Computed example of a mutant assay.
Amino acid sequence: MKRPFHLFAILATIALTASRPLPPEVANPATFLADVKTELTKQWPKNRSITLVFHGHSVPAGYFKTPIVNTLAAYPQQLLKRLKDKYPYAVINVTITAVGGENSEQGAARFQTEVLSHKPDVLFIDYALNDRKIGLEKAKQSWQAMIEQAQQAGIKVILLTPSPDLKVDMANADNILNQHANQIRQLADTYQTGLVDSYKAFDGQRQQGDSLGRYMAQNNHPNEMGHVLIVDELVKWF
């Protein structure tokens, strides 16, 4: 008895699907930084310096209410403190290459000379707030360029979605910040990098009825409490 043609088509589709590689996913927090975490546990004289580089705009640079720069309360230094509590034997260098007012296109232009030159063990990229000025496509190209250069150099990359701007309605799922957040999530999937979803963390507070204003030093810069929300997500990778 001959099998119907459509059955052959179904079987062929199943076989083709099974032979395809699984789609990439965001890196697994349990394993992504395993080698870095091992280094962080080593004691002298077997340990070495671990370098964390934070590349982006005014938020990782530490701007609160402009022109005040509250370096020690911003998330890079808060993360350092949390890591030192967890890894007391570690020598950890935190390097800030972030520039207030900069977008990812500008950040990509100085990436080779001012970021890769530090030879980071882990690189954090946070540009989405300012990328609204250049649009999704240019932002995507710039993030891709930085991710690819970093990965070619063997650097672990963690991408950050944007923290809030109080002028943007987060209740509208199609708002421009969430569009950039979605693009960053897709980049994390494509390149299998780490992802810190700052946008989701703040939006979760909003959805619980909390006032986002409590977490902001000005409309587009988090205060210390806001930076804590970001650090709570960052530290999960360590």
Rank of each mutant, 00 (worst) to 15 (best):
V157D: 11
K119L: 06
A27E: 09
Y87Q: 07
E224T: 09
L177M: 12
P222T: 03
Y191T: 08
L16W: 14
K37V: 10
L159E: 03
S142F: 04
Y63R: 07
G135K: 01
M146R: 06
V168W: 01
R206V: 04
V122A: 11
L40C: 06
Q144F: 03
R132Q: 08
L212I: 06
L177C: 00
Q141V: 14
Q106R: 09
F111L: 03
D85P: 00
F54T: 00
T97V: 01
L16N: 12
E105T: 13
N93W: 06
G226I: 03
I184Y: 05
I158C: 13
F64W: 11
A150V: 07
D174I: 04
K81H: 11
N223W: 02
R214F: 13
M225L: 14
I184A: 04
Q192P: 00
Q186C: 08
Y215H: 07
L40V: 05
I14R: 12
A128Q: 09
E233F: 07
A98Y: 05
I68E: 13
L229N: 07
G204K: 05
D126S: 12
I184R: 00
I147H: 08
V231H: 05
Y127Q: 00
D165Q: 14
F54V: 03
A18P: 02
G62S: 07
Y89N: 11
T113K: 15
L83D: 08
P67E: 10
V228N: 14
T13P: 05
N70M: 12
K236R: 13
Q179S: 13
V26D: 01
T161Y: 08
K46G: 10
A217G: 09
T13N: 13
Q43D: 11
K200S: 15
D189Q: 10
